[in-house]
Amino acid sequence: MRSEQEVNRVIEQYADTVRRICMIHLKNYADTEDIFQTVFLKYTLSSVLFESEEHEKAWLIRVTINTCKDFLKSFFHNHTTSLEELIKQPAELSQEHRDLLEAVLSLPVKYREIIYLHYYEGYTAPQISRILGKNVNTIYTLLTRSRQKLREKLEGDEYER
């Protein structure tokens, strides 16, 4: 088991990352809280030795994604929350950013993950394939499609205005 200091450092360092992945997958704050607890508990109890900070971060990202997916699969999960609850921090977000995130979140989950990992975290397709446990070529396809879809969404929004 890891020490309290170590765990607290990791929470401070990666809380935002975990929070963003939760936002991509989940629909409400209560679920996010559950995921937070589960992910960091897994970290606390795991005995994995990390070679580098990059390794540690990738491990946490993978664990968070898997935890979110397990959570969504679970029977007790409530599917009824609406999209409006997605973004909980209205004060800090400009309208433009909020629109962009909403466009991202309206895409299917497989595209959201890719967009987040590639455009925000800056992972390359081979790295993403390792994190998600998918074929590299699948990732390339998903990347192209997600870019297309997002663009369509954003352009659609602009026409509406």
Binding site: D16, R19, R20, Q89, L93, H97, R98, L101, Y120
Partner: peptide, 19 residues
Amino acid sequence: KLKEAFDGIKAEEALKESA
């Protein structure tokens, strides 16, 4: 833009504390 938008998402202090 995506980067900035995601940067806007931060873990709430309450979330960290509860964890």
